[in-house]
Design a protein around this nucleic acid. Structure first.
Length: 515
RNA sequence: GGGCCAGUAGCUCAAUUGGCAGAGCAGCAGACUCUUAAUCUGCGGGUUGAAGGUUCGAUUCCUUCCUGGCUCACCA
């Protein structure tokens, strides 16, 4: 440790913590003095704690006495209780916990001396047989004890655990050690991803990976992160969406593709937004947005059942049914009904189609109308402001204004409206889908509209992507596509109020020193 | 970025109008042959987020800053 490091350590560490570290180091040195390797390279365990608990929990004490099952297992010490000659450890493999009974006359002298130098948090291996104590607790009667690794820092307390959210996010390993619920959230997240993956592959979708670093950040309306490639001396963006690449693949004849991966958007952070977040995006030829509504209902309900065992969930104060079918609500009708109720007068559908009257309604509702807003954008603003957080039960909001959907196909009977829906659950957006615009001439016109917004200062407006237009010129079959927010779906399925609770290492501000 | 709230021992939390900074768990020493938040006895542990200010005296009041939470704005 350098001079500067030790000064830093001195400043960051209180005496209490430093004392406990010194005591733990002393225990490690005592083990070394006994000839015990401080950090052995391997331990051959026969069973995990979880398999032991699962296999033997149903058995009575008598049954275990008859069977006398032997095991070799390992874990982290989460509790120690000593009674002179009778000692107990609680071992955890991260998922399950199992008690170990330690007594001097049941194991080699060296092993018992190892036990004397163990600390709360150490990793150990145990050999022994399973039995039940007088209080009927499934326990390993240890015949051997092996030291595996040291915990040098004091762990959070066993009863209250770790509740400080900042520490839970910054030092997720501590959260996982002491909060079993946190572990469960991430196990559910893993199940959600595998359930989605099998749902898609079973239906003939090909899983692909497209660039995370893109010269043009397209496929969504958002501000990107900027980076740089040295050898090519090239400015690159972290992708805000994989959309344009996935549709290029559909042009190339991959009729059903999906990708589960990260998107990066350089925007605000909130309980529903992390700068990097995970989306499943998929495209399927010969389909439209109506087909995707049906498929999405099935997907959500199936994934919920596979990941949580039920399609009925509790989210905050709400009971939500994820069973199909979901409600359907036209965006303009929703906006009109909500505005009518709020303003106390019946609004005619045409009023939201006309910029002047729509702007008047928005202003009456206290919603700001910026100069660039057309009637479609205004209607969308009204909807988001008045309706969005009321959509707790799954609801498909459909028929978006063309103005806010530069990549979606127009309805044949209504060029101001596109064939698009967003799925809302729990008051926030979970999915966004549309019939893909495949007319290259119209796509170029939409990009040019976006360029005008860009020129007038809209940093989120879409850039021109000549190669994407060229791909469309080769011909994209009728195709529908969708993006599904994995983090938000996991929030719903784990009853997590913040997106940070379902991301292992959410982005945090850098601390000045140390952690 | 705005508003509100919070930061005290390793962890979870107290501290009266501004008057000696405490408890439980964890740690250390000891007792104890089946406990499970074990119990009992004793002990150690603090730059009260940081810097300044007011005051005889600041965890407490004021200012600025740091970090986090909620919320609004933006967004998915």
């Amino acid at each position: 440790m350098s001079f500067i490091d030790s000064r830093l350590a001195f400043r960051l560490m209180s005496t209490s913590q430093d004392e406990q570290i010194q005591q733990r180091k002393a225990n490690l040195e005592a083990l070394t003095a006994l000839g015990v390797p401080a950090y052995p390279s391997k331990f051959e365990r026969r069973d995990t704690i979880t398999t032991l608990v699962d296999a033997h929990s149903p058995k009575s004490g008598e049954a275990l006495e008859a069977e006398r099952p032997e095991t070799v297992t390992s874990g982290r010490i989460l509790a120690m209780r000593s009674f002179g000659k009778a000692n107990f450890l609680v071992l955890s493999d991260g998922r399950s916990r199992l008690q170990v009974y330690i007594r001097q006359d049941s194991m080699p002298d060296l092993d018992f001396r190892i036990f004397k130098h163990l600390d709360f948090g150490d990793w150990v291996g145990v050999e022994g047989r399973l039995f039940r104590t007088k209080t009927n607790e499934l326990t390993i009667w240890a015949s051997r004890l092996h030291f595996l690794s040291k915990c040098l820092l004091p762990l959070p307390e066993k009863w209250h655990g770790l509740t400080d959210v900042e520490t839970r996010y910054r030092q997720r390993y501590l959260d996982l050690i002491v909060n079993p619920d946190s572990r469960r959230v991430f196990e559910t997240r893993s199940k959600v991803v595998s359930a989605i993956r099998s749902f898609m592959t079973e239906r003939g979708y090909l899983e692909v990976e497209t660039p995370m670093m893109q010269a043009i950040a397209g496929g969504a309306l958002a501000r990107p992160f900027v980076t740089h490639h040295n050898a090519l001396d090239m400015q690159l963006y972290l992708r805000i969406a994989p959309e344009l690449y996935l549709k290029r693949l559909t042009v190339g004849g991959l009729e059903r593709v999906f990708e589960i991966n990260r998107n990066f958007r350089n925007e605000g952070i909130s309980t529903q937004h992390n700068p990097e977040f995970t989306m499943m995006e998929f495209y399927q030829a010969y389909s439209d947005y109506q087909d995707l509504m049906v498929m999405t209902e099935e997907l959500i309900a199936t994934v919920a059942r596979q990941a949580t065992g039920s399609d009925q969930i509790t989210f905050g104060d709400h009971q939500i049914s994820l069973a199909a079918p979901f409600a359907r609500l036209s965006l303009r009708e929703g906006a009109r009904d909500a505005a009518s109720a709020k303003l106390g007068r019946a609004i005619d559908p045409q009023e939201l189609r006309n910029r002047e009257s729509a702007a008047a309604i928005a202003t009456a509702l206290g919603i700001e109308v910026k100069p660039g807003y057309g009637a479609g954008k205004i209607a969308t603003e009204i909807f988001e402001r008045l309706c969005e957080d009321r959509l707790v039960q799954p609801t498909f909001v459909y028929d978006f204004p063309t103005e806010v959907s530069p990549l979606s196909k127009q309805r044949p009977d209504d060029p101001d409206t596109v064939e698009r829906f967003e799925l809302y659950i729990g008051g926030f957006e979970v999915a966004n889908a549309f019939s893909e615009l495949n007319d290259p001439v119209e796509q170029r016109r939409r990009f040019e509209d976006q360029l005008k917004d860009r020129a007038s200062g809209d940093l989120e407006a879409h850039a021109m992507d000549e190669d994407y237009v060229r791909a469309l010129e080769y011909g994209l079959p009728p195709t529908a596509g969708e993006g599904l927010g994995i983090d938000r779906l996991v929030m719903l399925l784990t009853n997590s109020p913040s997106i940070r609770d379902v991301i292992l290492f959410p982005l945090m501000r850098r601390r000045a020193e140390g952690d």
